[in-house]
Simulated assay, not measured.
Amino acid sequence: MLREEILLVYDRECPACNAYCQIVRIKQCVGDLRIVDARENSEVMNEITAQGLDIDQGMVLKMGEQLYYGADAIHMLALIGSRSGIFNRFNHWMFKSKTISKIIYPLLKLCRNLLLKILRKTKINNLKNKANEKF
């Protein structure tokens, strides 16, 4: 039987995002987690942009045809996440509540944006780039 492929799309140039996405694990019974760099052109990035989701403001988790964005993505990862290892147990405990995820995620996003500014990394600007293609 083919296992469902679950996509986690994020900015690989962000050290904090990269560390999180490399450590997070999902339960084997849920499917296979594939990490996608949002800076690379891909079908899923085209889908994210077409939905009007700004990848600079939140990671995306794609399960089946459903896109989970930002706080919803981190919440879903906590729900489907493995409980093996200290990090994954902490991730589940911290983000299993949708309310807590929505409160904490903006702070994580602020830290990410500050980190990228300090490291002089450019934003992906997927929505701006898409708007420029139309002209």
Rank of each mutant, 00 (worst) to 15 (best):
L2R: 15
E4R: 10
E4S: 05
E5G: 09
I6N: 11
L7H: 09
L8T: 02
V9R: 05
V9T: 09
R12V: 03
R12Q: 08
E13K: 12
C14S: 03
P15W: 06
Y20N: 01
C21L: 00
Q22P: 00
I26M: 10
Q28K: 15
V30S: 11
V30P: 05
G31D: 05
L33T: 01
L33S: 04
I35W: 08
V36T: 02
D37C: 08
A38V: 02
R39L: 05
R39E: 04
S42Q: 05
S42E: 03
E43W: 06
E43K: 05
V44H: 05
V44S: 03
V44A: 02
M45P: 01
M45Q: 10
N46I: 07
N46T: 11
N46P: 06
E47P: 02
I48D: 07
I48M: 10
I48Q: 07
T49R: 09
Q51V: 00
Q51K: 13
Q51G: 00
G52M: 07
G52L: 07
G52P: 08
L53R: 12
D54S: 13
D56A: 04
Q57I: 01
M59Y: 04
M59L: 10
V60Y: 08
V60D: 01
V60L: 02
L61H: 08
E65P: 00
Q66H: 11
Y69H: 08
G70V: 03
D72T: 05
I74S: 08
H75C: 11
H75A: 06
L77A: 08
A78F: 07
G81C: 11
S82Q: 13
S82D: 15
S82R: 14
R83G: 05
R83L: 09
S84L: 11
S84P: 03
S84K: 15
I86G: 03
I86R: 12
N88V: 07
H92R: 11
H92Y: 14
W93N: 06
F95P: 01
F95L: 02
F95V: 01
K96H: 15
K96S: 15
K98H: 13
T99H: 09
I100Y: 12
I100M: 12
I104G: 00
Y105A: 05
P106Y: 14
P106T: 04
L107G: 11
L107C: 11
L108Y: 13
L110Y: 15
L114N: 11
L114R: 13
L115C: 03
L115Y: 07
K117H: 11
I118Q: 08
I118S: 02
R120A: 09
K121T: 00
K121G: 00
K121A: 00
K121N: 00
T122Q: 14
K123G: 09
I124W: 09
I124T: 03
N129M: 11
K130I: 10
A131G: 06
